[in-house]
């Protein structure tokens, strides 16, 4: 089942909520705010949520987007849920490494790898 949204595609698979991004660039302040609110709504309505963020097709993001992901991570932890990231391209993964956020997030090469860890 797909939920229509301006920025996200959301589907369910074996009790995992899989979110992928419509935009190739996650840069604009307003879009980042809307994405964050939308994901946090998904998290807040499901205690113990198992959430996979699939970054296929995303080729740019900013520090504001990283901040949004950190806020999502904090919400997921409050809900005793699990968050996994997957399909992050090489250049964006470098951004995670430089900021050491690869230590904070659980990042997998593929969505299947991430699902196996949820």
């Amino acid at each position: 089942m797909e939920t229509p949204s301006s920025h996200l595609k959301v589907r369910r698979s074996d009790n995992v909520t899989i979110v992928s991004f419509v935009d190739r660039k996650i840069l604009e302040e307003l879009a980042i705010q809307e994405i964050g609110e939308e994901i946090n709504r998904l998290v807040e309505t499901e205690p113990g949520v198992r959430l996979l963020l699939d970054f296929s097709g995303v080729d740019h993001l900013s520090s504001a987007a990283l901040g949004m992901l950190i806020t999502v991570n904090n919400r997921v932890k409050e809900q005793n849920g699990l968050l996994r990231l997957a399909n992050i391209n090489k250049q964006i993964f470098e951004v995670f490494k430089i900021t050491r956020l690869n230590k904070l997030f659980s990042i997998h090469a593929t969505a299947d790898d991430a699902l196996a860890d949820l």
Binding site: S63, G67, M68, I70, N74, T99, R100
Partner: peptide
């Protein structure tokens, strides 16, 4: 420094270090 352990979960303050990197 946003890469310090105590700052990793703070949502702000990474722009400058990314520019420097």
């Amino acid at each position: 420094d946003p890469t310090l352990d105590e700052n990793l979960e703070k949502p702000h303050g990474r722009g400058l270090m990314l520019m420097r990197a």
